[in-house]
């Protein structure tokens, strides 16, 4: 199995997420950055499939130079090699442009299976899997809580998470599969893995290397633009009801006013 797994470096889950004041893109400079937590489930699933069926796991990311840290994390978990698409010209690309760029890179790898997370915790668009499948001309299975690959039969089946249970869905290989957090427990990178990560093959591509037209990527050519943003309003302090023998009545009145009773 030739498995490609997409990962993204995002601001730490606990960091205060901000937009760059100048161009309204995600501020990745003033915060600690980590691998998108949901991507860890994708990497884990790719490694499990490789361990069961053999083959190779290639990590693909698009992001600034610092995103190599996220690649190294995936390599230290056990992925075999990585492709890092990085170029100042890519800065500010929207989901459409990013998917076009990633699809171009992934197509050159001729994968049997592409694994993505459901979304990244920074922009939370949740569209990359679908966009990649469309651009690669592959079937897409989404919301997978279990993935079973049958390389001999050339198919992949999943348990697709639904509100009231799950649906069994299958597709022919190659395919794009989006996984949810329930699917596995990502491993810690082993000490050996950490020491070996730097020695694993890493291909760094500029947009030109990947065959992308300069005008097709980046902030200037983006189809969607963040025009303005406002921080969420601070939480309002609650109402304090002082019990002077009529506390119960006051609470009942309050609940009635909220149309809760």
């Amino acid at each position: 199995m030739n498995i490609v797994v997409t990962v993204k470096q995002v601001p730490d889950t606990w960091a205060e997420k901000k937009l760059d004041a100048a161009d309204k893109t995600v501020d990745r400079v003033s915060v600690d950055n980590v691998m998108n937590e949901m991507d860890e489930y994708g990497v884990e699933e790719a490694l499990k499939i490789k361990e069961a069926h053999g083959g190779e796991v290639t990590v693909v990311t698009m992001g600034p130079a610092k995103a190599v840290e996220t690649i190294r994390k995936a390599l230290s978990m056990g992925a075999d090699k990585a492709v890092h698409l990085t170029d100042d010209a890519l800065h500010g690309s929207d989901a459409l442009q990013t998917s076009a760029a990633l699809a171009k890179v992934i197509a050159t790898l001729s994968p049997d299976l592409v694994i993505t997370a459901t979304e990244a915790s920074d922009a939370r668009g949740g569209v990359m899997g679908a966009l990649l499948a469309e651009r690669l001309g592959l079937p897409q299975l989404t919301q997978a809580r279990k993935v079973t690959v049958d390389p001999a039969a050339g198919k992949v089946s999943i348990e697709r998470l639904a509100d009231n249970g799950y649906a069994l869905v299958e597709a022919s290989l190659p395919a794009v599969v989006g996984v949810v957090e329930k699917i596995n427990q990502p491993r810690y990178p082993s000490f050996k893995g950490i020491m070996a990560a730097k020695k694993k093959p890493l291909t760094t591509l500029s947009s030109g290397d990947a065959g992308l037209d300069a005008g097709s990527v980046g902030l200037a050519g983006a189809g969607s633009t963040v025009v303005d943003s406002q921080p969420a309003p601070p939480r309002q302090s609650g109402t304090i009801v002082k019990d002077e023998g009529d506390g119960g009545v006051k609470i009942a009145d309050f609940l009635a006013a909220q149309k809760l009773i």
């Binding site: 190294r72 230290s76 810690y188 000490f191 950490i194 020491m195 990560a197 730097k198």
Partner: peptide
């Protein structure tokens, strides 16, 4: 590598 070890 040492930083990775510490984080992990």
């Amino acid at each position: 590598e040492e930083q990775e070890l510490r984080k992990a």
